[in-house]
Design a protein around this nucleic acid. Sequence first.
DNA 1: TCCTTTGGGATACAGTCGTATTCTAAAGCG
DNA 2: CGCTTTAGAATACGACTGTATCCCAAAGGA
Lengths: 194, 194
Amino acid sequence: MPRTVDREEQRRHIGTALLRLVSERGLDEVSVRTVAAAAGRSPGAVQKYFRTKEEMLAFAAELAGERVERRMAGVDTSLPPRRALRALILTTLPVDAERRAEATAQLAFAVHATHHPRLAATRRQVDEDVRQALAAWLEVAGYGAHATAVADAVIALSDGLALRMLYAPQEHEHLLTVLDHALDVLLPDPPVMG
Amino acid sequence: MPRTVDREEQRRHIGTALLRLVSERGLDEVSVRTVAAAAGRSPGAVQKYFRTKEEMLAFAAELAGERVERRMAGVDTSLPPRRALRALILTTLPVDAERRAEATAQLAFAVHATHHPRLAATRRQVDEDVRQALAAWLEVAGYGAHATAVADAVIALSDGLALRMLYAPQEHEHLLTVLDHALDVLLPDPPVMG
DNA sequence: TCCTTTGGGATACAGTCGTATTCTAAAGCG
DNA sequence: CGCTTTAGAATACGACTGTATCCCAAAGGA
């Protein structure tokens, strides 16, 4: 068994290049050849790790989902509820170059998923994870009454804000105040215990 | 000047076919040839009305924007505020086949606009119109204090809900209850006058 | 009626797409 | 060392892309 290589690492390398390409040039600029170029590989090499383009996209979509979950898991949820929730949401908004790239990829995949059941399934899985985590956290923070409704509203709100921030970066700051106002009414401060 | 034809009507006919194609098969299935087929024309005929594909997409994007504004203008805003706002939002959500088609096209164009400045400009224009109309209406309905913030929150919320409904139609009904809960907190009932 | 302009279809062309196949070189194992 | 398996590049192929060009039929103005 000669010249063996960490296949999973290679797949991640290519998947990462694909996500970078999506965020910089959009999903329709993604082809086997452009991804190979972005990853510093030959198109033939990419084919060794992904038999079809669809398989490559599915892998990248999962990779993007993992990133979201990992980033949210990194937020200090012991902060005051309102601040913690704001921090959680900010990890999904295009507030800096890195998050802008990820938000772009997320939304591109979300829209793509509308017509591609396989991608839709992985999207829903990520959504479900985020939703459960958010709802559970709202519960312990004292917002048990409408935890899941608030969680879903928060997800929808941040998706909508992210979308708008992407094609209207001028409104960036204004949209952050919109977020704050929405959080004011969604999370009455202080929380009602019980 | 022989054989003259209503050019604008023809452009609309082709643009309508394009939007239908986007909603049914996604934006990456849009090509000059597929649009021509969907419109019952030859590719050459389409070229007579749109010199480039980009021009065709820009026209379709404006057409889609017009539809949103027309549909919202058709809502009876003399209803009780809460009911009227709900009706306004429902015109943008994929609650039936027709609105599903439009929401799909809207979101596809929105994401596409991220990397295409010309489309982003027309998106922003539509957003601005909707935003102003919504804010003005909230003002007379007695929610003057945070009218624009509420308007923007509502827009973001419905965009996020629409996106999710498209790739997760199973959650459709649940998401409508999420909308209602969000409206409950965004529009305290009854409104505070002044 | 003829001439000119137009709508609309057909065709051509160069480029890119996804994917299958074929090649070379390298590396572990006997 | 030599054999075998693999990584990875190169090539090939048919389909599709956007767009330019050409051709024909139809219709209004002279």
